[in-house]
Amino acid sequence: MGADYPFSKNEKKDIAMAVYKVVAGCRAMSIDPEAEQFMTLPEYNSLWSIMNMHHYLTHSASSLSSAPMDMSAALLNELITTMESAVDGTNRYSAMLRFGHAETLMPLFALMRLPGCYYITDNFDTVALHWLDFQVVPMAANLQMILLRAKSGKYYVRFDLNERPVPLIPGEPTLYIIPWESAREYLTRCLPSGFLDRRGS
């Protein structure tokens, strides 16, 4: 038992990650598993950084590939179309809800370049400082696109990421409510090159 137990190197890695997933899952549900019984804080952080990197490379944009986020193009285009139909009056629902897992949300948030959800670097040692899976997709992660109509009849939109308003347009860090026309133009530019042309063919 202990140090003498005949685990291979790969088995040790698999067991450490399995323990981490159980501990992290408990913490996500506000259950204190007393993680210190199983690992030190530096060990816990190291295991988190491995899982964080896995999520980043598999489900977000990176200098290696934009494919994960590009696969969200059809979803983003559908969100734009749905919002536009609410503005022009053809969609009279007061709310439209969609459900998706974290694996759906991470690529979408990256494609939209939402703050904290899009990070491109060639120095992967910095990923854990700038792209944090527990902030991008915490338990019950969500995006709200809130359409507002002014007395003038003009439409505005606010984006709430995980219950907090976020600026949509890069370079405008305090602009939370923007004209729908500006948001639509920006989101359309986020779509991969040639996407709309391929849709029309």
Score class of each variant (00 low, 15 high):
residue 54 H to E: 10
residue 183 A to S: 07
residue 173 P to N: 11
residue 175 L to M: 11
residue 115 P to E: 00
residue 61 A to L: 01
residue 29 M to E: 14
residue 71 M to F: 05
residue 173 P to Y: 09
residue 14 D to Q: 10
residue 6 P to N: 08
residue 92 R to F: 06
residue 139 M to D: 01
residue 80 I to M: 05
residue 182 S to Q: 14
residue 134 F to I: 00
residue 45 N to F: 07
residue 41 L to G: 05
residue 4 D to R: 08
residue 199 R to A: 08
residue 9 K to H: 10
residue 117 C to F: 11
residue 43 E to V: 04
residue 104 T to K: 08
residue 127 V to N: 12
residue 68 P to S: 04
residue 7 F to S: 05
residue 169 I to K: 10
residue 173 P to W: 06
residue 181 E to V: 05
residue 133 D to A: 10
residue 47 L to M: 07
residue 53 M to F: 09
residue 64 L to T: 13
residue 48 W to T: 02
residue 143 L to F: 02
residue 194 G to T: 04
residue 58 T to C: 07
residue 53 M to P: 00
residue 87 V to A: 13
residue 100 G to L: 09
residue 121 T to F: 10
residue 59 H to V: 05
residue 53 M to W: 01
residue 64 L to P: 01
residue 2 G to C: 07
residue 47 L to P: 02
residue 84 E to F: 03
residue 30 S to W: 09
residue 82 T to C: 14
residue 79 L to D: 04
residue 57 L to N: 14
residue 29 M to S: 12
residue 187 L to T: 06
residue 134 F to R: 03
residue 154 K to R: 15
residue 52 N to T: 07
residue 170 P to M: 00
residue 37 Q to V: 05
residue 177 I to C: 11
residue 180 W to G: 02
residue 45 N to A: 06
residue 53 M to E: 06
residue 75 L to E: 00
residue 151 K to A: 09
residue 123 N to I: 09
residue 112 M to A: 10
residue 121 T to D: 04
residue 180 W to T: 03
residue 164 R to A: 02
residue 121 T to I: 10
residue 85 S to W: 05
